[in-house]
């Protein structure tokens, strides 16, 4: 994920330096132990316990897999995240290509427009979509004024609204990862193909798309994980009619106060995310292994 090269320090650490090294590390470790490791351990423990009697049980897991509601929530979360991942990557690609290749003075403006919303925070953007998609919102209001429709279209409180809202939230990250990947493709390849008579379309199909596959994969993965763990956008745009794991977890904790079951749901979400990240890491390692094989064979 993040590789931080350990730079050579000025001197080899002496014994007292090491002790002081551990000492300055202590506050971070303490905070993360108390407020991250111990809570995670408690949550995993709770998932195997009866919330009332605190006796060990597998009932919470049994309930998760037999209860249609939670499996439906898991399914909705997966469908929503896949749709968001695809929308982000498809919408982000042209912008990323422009950002990676353009030398025009408009580039800075496009860059700012594409990324500035990230600073606005999730609530503001979700609120904007609420105004636009509501039954009496911008789009329905306009269409009804124009007499195109008689009753409002169901644009909010459903899968459509949540996918639109989340695509908007995640898009800047998709654009960034695609841009980085396209920038890494040697522009001479495109020029060479064009000089040899390839059409724009076949340059895109046979050169740019295949070479940017790593960027596409990372954009899909980032978008999927961000969408699956989002809370505020599904809560506001999906409401009670479109519940995903994140919003169901919240309900279990605050309304039903069923901690064991909430813990199981949280673990289900965590496992889904870790599985996706694992796929990403495996893809990366395989790709770099293939590349080093090829380079090794060529030289």
């Amino acid at each position: 994920m993040s590789t931080i090269a350990l730079a050579a320090p000025a001197a080899m650490p002496s014994a007292p330096a090491r002790t002081s090294g551990y000492m300055v590390l202590a506050p971070s470790c303490l905070v993360l132990t108390i407020f991250f490791a111990m809570p995670m351990g408690t949550m995993i423990g709770m998932s195997f316990m009866d919330a009332q009697t605190l006796s060990p049980t597998l009932l919470n897991y049994q309930r998760f897999f037999s209860d249609g509601l939670s499996l439906a929530g898991l399914y909705r979360t997966a469908v929503m995240s896949i749709l968001v991942a695809v929308c982000v990557t498809v919408l982000g690609y042209p912008v990323a290509y422009y950002l990676a290749r353009s030398r025009s003075r408009w580039r800075a403006l496009v860059f700012a427009l594409a990324l500035a919303p990230e600073l606005a925070g999730v609530v503001l953007r979700t609120y904007g979509w609420l105004i636009i998609l509501e039954d009496r919102g911008f789009i329905n209001d306009m269409l009804m004024h124009l007499g195109v429709i008689a009753s409002p279209l169901p644009l909010s409180k459903n899968l459509f609204a949540v996918v639109v809202g989340l695509t908007h939230v995640v898009l800047p990250f998709g654009i960034l990862s695609l841009t980085t990947s396209i920038q890494g493709i040697d522009p001479n390849l495109e020029r060479a193909a064009q000089m040899l008579g390839a059409s724009r379309l076949s340059v895109i199909r046979h050169i740019i798309l295949p070479l940017s596959v790593p960027g596409i994969v990372s954009s899909l993965l980032i978008a999927f994980t961000m969408a699956a763990s989002a809370y505020a956008t599904p809560a506001l745009l999906g409401g009670a009619r479109f519940k995903v794991l994140a919003t169901m977890i919240y309900e279990q904790v605050l309304f039903y106060i069923d901690w064991g079951f909430a813990a199981v749901m949280a673990i289900a979400l965590l496992i889904m995310m870790l599985a996706i990240s694992f796929l990403g890491i495996r893809y990366e390692t395989r790709r770099s292994a293939r590349r080093s094989n090829r380079e090794g064979g060529a030289s």
């Binding site: 993040s2 993360l32 991250f36 949550m43 995310m273 870790l274 990240s277």
Partner: peptide
Amino acid sequence: IMAGLLSPLSVPQIVKGVAIVLFLSI
């Protein structure tokens, strides 16, 4: 140690939130 310090990044926020509220209640 660095991997440990960065490990909270791989857990979704909502899961961290549940974990903390359960822990404090317990």
